[in-house]
Amino acid sequence: MKYMKRRGLNFLLLVVVLGVGFVSCSKTSRQKARELEVELRDKYVAKYYPDAQPTPSGLYVIKEQDAPAGADSITVGDQVKVFYTGNLIESTDSTGVQDGYVFDSSGDYEPFTFTVGAGSVISGWEEAIQQMKEGEKAVWIIPSTLGYSGTPQSGVPAYSTLVFHVTVYKVIKSNSDPVIIERQF
């Protein structure tokens, strides 16, 4: 009898261990969402920007219009005014991969204004804007790791690559250089 109880407990333990093993082998919905994000982003880049190379963080900045000669680089502390449209990537049987749902836009009349490095925009924007100059147009392809990650935002599902079409309208350089006042005696 004692042997039968022990054998029964061993069998139960084996079932529990195997059950945990099978559960841990199956992918979670988060893992599937991350894999779908990478798949869609790779297809999108291959279709529209096959020569584009990401930064080490995974960001793509594809320049579509260069800055005028003499335009300054954008640095932390500068205030920038940009026009933009933010899209999600979508893929359908009829059209394939393309810019999808517009989840955000500055509109056509009033640019969006922010200070670089102030933490008021996602990290993908902070990185991308510092690769731009006044007057440039670019497409920014921002992986979720530099956007909203696993946190859904209004109109943006978790683990979504964000595609921004951006025009840098104006750069107001910061006055970060200390002012030296000489006294005359």
Results as ranks from 00 to 15, higher is better:
residue 171 V to N: 05
residue 156 V to E: 10
residue 94 S to F: 12
residue 93 D to Y: 11
residue 107 G to D: 01
residue 150 G to M: 01
residue 139 V to L: 10
residue 117 G to K: 01
residue 183 R to K: 15
residue 143 P to D: 00
residue 102 V to P: 13
residue 171 V to W: 02
residue 99 D to A: 13
residue 93 D to A: 14
residue 137 K to T: 15
residue 112 F to I: 05
residue 113 T to I: 13
residue 167 T to F: 12
residue 160 S to P: 07
residue 133 K to L: 04
residue 135 G to T: 07
residue 115 T to S: 06
residue 124 G to P: 02
residue 149 S to L: 10
residue 116 V to C: 03
residue 146 L to P: 08
residue 162 L to Y: 11
residue 173 K to Y: 01
residue 85 T to C: 11
residue 175 N to C: 08
residue 177 D to L: 15
residue 160 S to R: 03
residue 167 T to A: 12
residue 112 F to P: 02
residue 147 G to M: 01
residue 91 S to C: 11
residue 163 V to K: 11
residue 174 S to N: 13
residue 105 S to C: 12
residue 119 G to W: 00
residue 163 V to M: 11
residue 92 T to S: 14
residue 86 G to P: 09
residue 84 Y to E: 06
residue 173 K to V: 12
residue 170 K to Q: 11
residue 110 E to H: 05
residue 111 P to V: 07
residue 166 V to Q: 01
residue 127 E to N: 06
residue 183 R to W: 10
residue 88 L to F: 07
residue 89 I to V: 15
residue 174 S to T: 13
residue 160 S to Y: 09
residue 162 L to K: 09
residue 148 Y to H: 11
residue 86 G to L: 14
residue 96 G to F: 01
residue 149 S to G: 10
residue 87 N to D: 14
residue 107 G to P: 08
residue 108 D to E: 14
residue 167 T to P: 05
residue 137 K to A: 14
residue 91 S to W: 09
residue 170 K to S: 05
residue 113 T to L: 05
residue 170 K to L: 08
residue 112 F to W: 05
residue 145 T to K: 00
residue 127 E to H: 06
residue 144 S to Y: 01
residue 136 E to A: 07
residue 127 E to Q: 13
residue 103 F to K: 07
residue 135 G to F: 04
residue 140 W to C: 08
residue 128 A to T: 05
residue 173 K to T: 13
residue 96 G to C: 04
residue 82 V to Y: 04
residue 179 V to A: 15
residue 105 S to E: 07
residue 106 S to F: 01
residue 160 S to K: 01
residue 143 P to T: 02
residue 89 I to C: 06
residue 106 S to P: 09
residue 119 G to V: 07
residue 103 F to P: 10
residue 161 T to H: 02
residue 128 A to Q: 00
residue 146 L to Y: 06
residue 98 Q to C: 07
residue 130 Q to Y: 04
residue 165 H to P: 06
residue 137 K to V: 14
residue 178 P to N: 08
residue 121 V to A: 00
residue 82 V to H: 02
residue 116 V to K: 01
residue 150 G to F: 01
residue 99 D to Q: 13
residue 120 S to C: 00
residue 181 I to P: 06
residue 152 P to K: 03
residue 84 Y to N: 08
residue 133 K to G: 02
residue 82 V to F: 06
residue 138 A to V: 11
residue 77 G to M: 04
residue 134 E to K: 04
residue 88 L to E: 07
residue 157 P to N: 06
residue 165 H to I: 11
residue 162 L to Q: 12
residue 81 K to P: 00
residue 119 G to D: 00
residue 174 S to M: 09
residue 172 I to D: 10
residue 110 E to Q: 11
residue 95 T to K: 15
residue 133 K to C: 06
residue 109 Y to E: 13
residue 133 K to S: 12
residue 146 L to G: 08
residue 118 A to M: 03
residue 84 Y to D: 07
residue 96 G to L: 03
residue 149 S to V: 05
residue 114 F to W: 06
residue 134 E to Y: 01
residue 155 G to D: 12
residue 87 N to L: 11
residue 127 E to W: 05
residue 81 K to N: 09
residue 97 V to Y: 06
residue 103 F to M: 09
residue 82 V to K: 01
residue 179 V to R: 11
residue 127 E to A: 06
residue 78 D to P: 03
